[in-house]
Design a binder for these strands. Structure first.
Lengths: 146, 146
DNA sequence: ATAGGACCTGAAGTCGCTAGAGGTTCAAGA
DNA sequence: TCTTGAACCTCTAGCGACTTCAGGTCCTAT
């Protein structure tokens, strides 16, 4: 039991290290019920399992990709219940797929615009810098999202 | 003088209209020192010049492209000094472009997984759902941006 | 036994806005 | 000239998703 604690369970700092997530953020996720609470030592410190590590990695990834905390909650629910009927899962997945595609489309526009801006490496001075020019003048902007 | 005020200077509502920026947001930008303060009428209302219109358009455009307020502050400083070398502006844009591309790459991975999931009109259970897995496990992630 | 690093809680601050309350000014029509 | 109502003003609080801080407690290696 003592050995279990020492060998299998991660203190919050280790979990943070392993996921690239800040300690405070982990506590925050726990607080808002996104990450299940870890057990505590007799001295009230959190100890996490490999399962927590998985979930937190998932959360980090999804946040990086721009999913809201609520969306992540949905996705986690999906994975938590393997017996869940498929229609529901499909619906959630489909909704998120649409969302992902919209995000991709938007980012591709941005990419093109930024590319265009930086491609013409300017002659040296701000006066004829493409970046500034494009930003200053809507007319020079190719994408249609605005 | 009176005519100047009426003809050349824009009240905040007009500026908002012309730039597609909300009135509150304009006041906010002024407050944080991103947009220079406009003059005031004797009754304390803001009046803006064409110069403000230009700057605000620049800000809006840059925000649309995902630049942070701080990045915009830098870009504005750069653009104010036309003799300055433009490598700096390039660098800001290039960093942002790299960021955008990394996000696109990851979203595409996710898109594929979500697609796969919904396409399979699945066999009954979540058990073999890889969405969570893909996001949770770095090792299963194909792209190399992290 | 003790030093000092890791951990705890709760509250407040950050960013980039947005919304609301409650009051003042401007400009066009009677 | 007066009136009316749209547009403006300031100040405060709220949002999501954290981050930082103050002031403590715990854990573990020596």
């Amino acid at each position: 039991m003592r050995a279990d604690l020492a060998e299998r369970l991660l203190p919050i700092g280790r979990l943070a290290e392993a996921t690239g997530c800040k300690i405070e953020t982990i506590r925050y996720y726990e607080q808002i019920g996104l990450l299940p609470e870890g057990e505590r030592t007799s001295g009230n410190q959190r100890r996490y399992t490999r399962r927590h590590l998985q979930i937190l990695s998932f959360i980090r990834h999804a946040r990086d990709l721009g999913f809201s905390v609520d969306a992540i909650r949905d996705l986690l629910k999906l994975s938590a219940d393997p017996a869940r009927p498929c229609a529901e899962a499909d619906a959630i997945a489909a909704a998120h797929l649409a969302d992902v595609r919209a995000k991709i489309a938007r980012l591709r526009n941005l990419e093109q615009e930024l590319e265009r801006m930086t491609r013409l490496h300017c002659s040296g001075a701000i006066a004829d810098c493409r970046v500034i020019e494009v930003l200053a003048d809507h007319g020079k902007c190719m994408h249609d999202s605005h």
